[in-house]
């Protein structure tokens, strides 16, 4: 029998904390970047890959991945796609407006995973808005890129217009050395001179030594299956593959049941999972 981790009641479990919008950038028609200040002055204290429950009073709550790397100050970033009530409302807010968050929640790229990554080739594979959760890790490792064998970032979008963080992508391209970025789009337009095709077409472009490569994937549900096939073709061990998964969440604290995937609560054990740990969980894909 597993040991249950029983905790005393937390009076503030469902109480959200206020944050103020200090900067807004439009990435695409649907995706908007928010830089936020925690009004309490406390640092968010998150791991890369964790999420917060964003709360718009009167509208509701929605889980949103944190897109900035861990910091000591009381600022953090979110990138929000307008797809539901809460996210649509967020898009109507302006600099200076206040909304609320709870968290950070979940299990991200924790210290152990980050330790495993030291000295290895890091392969990031992001589809569309899947870049956002990975960015919290990418921007954490890029400044210290010399500590890794290589950093490869594969990023696929539907169209060139859907590319987010374009300034940062340009910076990454300029870095050179042991940092490389491959991009592709599903459908091209006149502005685009790069690759066209699904993201799996980028995988063969990366030179890699499978056992010394650690992969982190995030994208739409359909993407995982195909990306995993292409990684298996490259002989990357299942132990070296991490995936960040999306599920519906209402509470963020392992109660409400919405995010349950087979036996695991994504909000507790995830959203970051090692492929080897969940490959037999039929509710993952």
């Amino acid at each position: 029998m597993m040991q249950l981790d029983l905790q005393p009641k937390d009076e503030k479990l469902y109480l959200p904390d206020p944050v103020r919008i200090v900067e807004i950038k439009d990435f695409t028609d649907k995706e908007r970047f928010f830089k936020l200040e925690i009004l309490s002055g406390k640092s968010l204290g998150h791991q890369p890959g964790q999420f917060v429950q964003v709360s718009v009073l009167g509208i509701g709550e929605a889980p949103i991945s944190i897109s900035s790397p861990p910091t000591k100050d009381h600022f953090f970033d979110l990138c929000v796609r307008a797809v539901g009530n809460v996210t649509n409302k967020l898009h109507t807010l302006k600099v200076g407006d206040i909304f609320h968050i709870r968290g950070p929640f979940g299990h991200g790229f924790d210290a152990d995973i980050q330790q495993r990554m030291q000295g290895k080739h890091l392969l990031f594979i992001a589809g569309g808005i899947g870049y956002v959760p990975l960015r919290s890790l990418i921007n954490n490792v890029l400044p210290e890129h010399h500590r890794y064998k290589k950093i490869s970032i594969l990023y696929g979008c539907r169209t060139p217009k859907d590319r987010m963080y374009q300034d940062e992508l340009a910076e990454i391209t300029k870095m050179g050395g042991n940092v490389e970025l491959f991009e592709t789009v599903d459908r091209t337009d006149e502005t685009w001179k790069g690759n066209v095709g699904v993201i799996t077409t980028l995988v063969p472009k990366v030179e890699l030594d499978p056992v010394n490569t650690i992969t982190a994937i995030c994208g739409p549900p359909i993407m995982y299956k195909f990306v995993l096939i292409s990684l298996m073709e490259r002989n990357i061990p299942k132990d070296n593959i991490y995936m960040s998964l999306e599920r519906r969440m209402k509470c963020g604290v392992g109660k409400c049941g919405h995010c349950q995937m087979g036996g695991v609560y994504v909000c507790q054990s995830g959203p970051v999972f090692k492929y080897a740990d969940v490959e037999h969980n039929e509710e993952v894909f």
Partner: peptide, 18 residues
């Protein structure tokens, strides 16, 4: 009791139980 206390203690349920 176990479910509402596990990992995070649900204040509403646990207060009523107390």
């Amino acid at each position: 009791d176990e479910a509402f206390a596990e990992s995070h203690g649900d204040p509403n349920y646990l207060s009523r139980r107390e």
